[in-house]
Design a binder for these strands. Structure first.
Length: 594
RNA sequence: GGGGACGUAGCUCAGUUGGUUAGAGCGCUGCCCUGUCACGGCAGAGGUCGCGGGUUCGAGCCCCGUCGUCCCCGCCA
């Protein structure tokens, strides 16, 4: 193929087929760069050697599909191109066929500067011809294969589950599929294979996995598409560590495909520690953690500085920001203060404290605690007098708020601290297990407790025994865990409930009557009563893994035909209205047209 | 649902305080060129300034609305 030829191929006759990447016309001598998936080779068309081929090359244009018959020649000294893998050779054409012409493309796949996404997505077939995209999808294919190979070798069975299934009223919004045969009834596309994989455990398939498509009708982000691919697995009789081991194993195999050698086991951290140290349940470990300055801020100091006594004071460092000018610093601080709004938070200006005799020791203590380096930016957030209302139902609120600020500033100064740049080694990838997630989550708007993970997650045995399911829902820990990479949640799983009575109790604790539970999950509750083994598993986003490995910041770079932020496919132009006839067959009527 | 950025030639973008005929680079078309590889030279074509309305003697620029793309919050058990 086009990318394969090397100096030792000189003298061989070859046939190459591909696209015209570029044409350089010197009159009686024409160069064509011919491109296929493997790379690019320079073709030489000399009017003296082959006037017919030369004449056709004159007519060739960018993106024409051509076939070349010719012989490989080592390039003369000084004519090599060190920027091309095939740069030591060229193919002297004896014969050239223009297999297909091409309209002038709206943008050139050969071009360095890339077009805007709207154009790229509309002409996705041209965008996908670009070298970067070809690389991304080759990587994706290898990664998926490595994961399959690993899991199969570990004794997992890949089993498919339905796309057309039943709507369950909790969680994300469902994509619905109307039934023609049963007018007014709908299938739902699965948000995940969750219930099916648990039933496969009940069915005796020890170890199940699937690289499965999932569908969620929610608003999108750079790392969220309406349909996405999960590496979904479940085993019987697991401890958490067993699941962690399988995941670490397949990730190691997957990353090897990108030339990265991971060294499991990965760091583990409880949810509570993640919140305390990073203010988020998916810490980005490439940056320093937050530091608690609660001890440094004694009650007298708080008194004089007008800081609330009972609440934490948190600081963090953004490394290597460098010297900020007076105005730059001022506008940064006031921008942050503006972001706080009336939330009751304020910044402590440590630089100013230093200039004051009374507070200089405090400033010094803070800088030491935060391990402040010469070029680092230090931010300290304090609660003003008066406890904000949110504190009453979310005592982690300040941590989360400061954690979010840490990420915003880290993104803002990414060019300075360079912690987000890839160097091509395992050090670029900070993996982390976050464990012991809370079982319940308080919904302030509806004043109810919801399942934080999903209602099939098993709580810690001791929390059940301590009666916390009824007395102290906020303190119940779940046997639920996330795997996090560089601040992105890659996947999430849990040890499941395998006893019908416990499952029923959880449903009741979520405010569901037995009747409601039975209506929604009756088939599943039934299944639990026929000898259910303890089981557990996890699901990881394949798209996100490949995205991070490819050094991309959007899933659209690693999904061949993605949708826009408004869930539109610009190439095929979907979704569309359908005919009255189709609607009638499905017993549907459209109430409003937009 | 909310906030922000962007929308000018096929692509990437510039366009000053509202003022003559809206520019550049790349691409495209034609001609020339036997060692280029982001080839080079000469000539040329190409514009509903996203769309609709308003202010004004005059709008790419100001105002209102609307559409699209991207990012974020909410949302994503």
């Amino acid at each position: 193929m086009c990318g394969d030829l090397r100096a030792e191929d000189a003298g061989n006759d070859v046939v190459l087929m591909g696209w015209v990447n570029r044409r350089r016309d010197h009159g009686n001598l024409i160069f064509l760069d011919v491109r296929d998936r493997s790379g690019i080779t320079q073709i030489v068309l000399d009017i003296e050697k082959s006037p017919e081929a030369h004449a056709k090359a004159e007519a060739a244009r960018s993106e024409y599909v051509v076939a070349v018959k010719g012989s490989v020649r080592k390039r003369a000294a000084g004519l090599e191109n060190p920027n091309m893998s095939t740069g030591d050779v060229e193919v002297v054409a004896h014969e050239l066929l223009l297999l297909n012409e091409a309209k002038t493309p709206p943008f050139s796949p050969a071009e360095e500067a890339i077009a805007n996404e709207e154009v790229r997505l509309k002409y996705r077939y041209l965008d996908l011809r670009r070298v970067e995209m070809q690389k991304n999808f080759a990587l994706r294919s290898r990664v998926a294969m490595a994961i399959r190979n690993y899991l199969v070798a570990e004794g997992f069975l890949e089993i498919e589950t339905p796309f057309m299934t039943r709507s369950t009223p909790e969680g994300a919004r469902d994509y619905l599929v109307p039934s023609r045969v049963h007018g007014g009834h709908f299938y739902a596309l699965p948000q995940s294979p969750q219930i099916f994989k648990q039933i496969l455990m009940i069915s005796g398939f020890d170890k199940y996995f699937q690289i499965a498509r999932c569908f969620r009708d929610e608003d999108l982000r750079a790392d969220r598409q309406p349909e996405f691919t999960q590496i979904d697995l479940e085993t019987t009789f697991p401890q958490q560590e067993l699941i962690f081991g399988f995941v670490e194993g397949f990730l190691k195999a997957a990353f090897r495909e990108a030339g990265i050698t991971l060294e499991p086991p990965f760091v583990q951290m409880t949810y509570d520690d993640a919140i305390k140290n990073y203010g988020i349940d998916k810490p980005d470990m490439r940056l320093p953690a937050m530091v608690s300055l609660t001890d440094e801020l004694t009650s007298e100091l708080r008194e004089t500085l007008k800081i609330e006594q009972a609440l934490p004071v948190l600081g963090f460092v953004i490394p290597s920001v460098g010297e900020l000018s007076g105005t730059a610093r001022k506008s940064l601080l006031s921008e942050i203060r503006g972001g706080f709004g009336d939330s009751g938070l304020d910044l402590l200006d440590v630089a100013r404290l230093k200039t004051n005799e009374t507070f200089a020791p405090l400033a010094a203590a803070i800088e030491t605690k935060a391990s402040l380096g010469a070029d680092d930016l230090l931010i300290v957030v304090t609660p003003k007098l008066g406890t904000p209302a949110m504190w009453n139902y979310d005592p982690q609120w300040i941590y989360k708020r400061v954690g979010a600020l840490r990420l915003t500033l880290a993104a803002k100064f990414a060019d300075k601290h360079k912690r987000f740049e890839q160097t091509g080694t395992a050090a670029d990838f900070k993996f982390l297990w976050v464990t012991d997630f809370p079982m319940y989550e308080w919904d302030e708007e509806h004043k109810v407790w919801n399942a934080a993970h999903h209602p099939f997650t098993s709580p810690h045995e001791e929390d059940i025994k301590a009666g916390k399911l009824t007395n102290d829902k906020g303190a119940v820990r779940a046997l639920a865990y996330d795997i996090v990479l560089n601040g992105t949640e890659l996947g999430s799983g849990s040890i499941r409930i395998h006893r019908q009575d416990v499952q029923a109790e959880i449903f009741r604790s979520l405010g569901m009557t037995d009747e409601e539970a039975h209506e929604r999950f009756g088939f599943f509750l039934d299944a639990l009563e026929y000898g259910t083994p303890p089981h557990g598993g996890i699901a990881l986003g394949l798209d996100r893994i490949v995205m991070i490995l490819a050094g991309a910041t959007s899933l659209r770079e690693v999904i061949a035909f993605p949708k826009t932020a408004k869930a539109i496919d610009l190439m095929v132009d979907a979704p569309t209205p359908v005919s009255e006839q189709q609607l009638k067959e499905l017993s549907l009527r459209v109430a409003t047209k937009s």
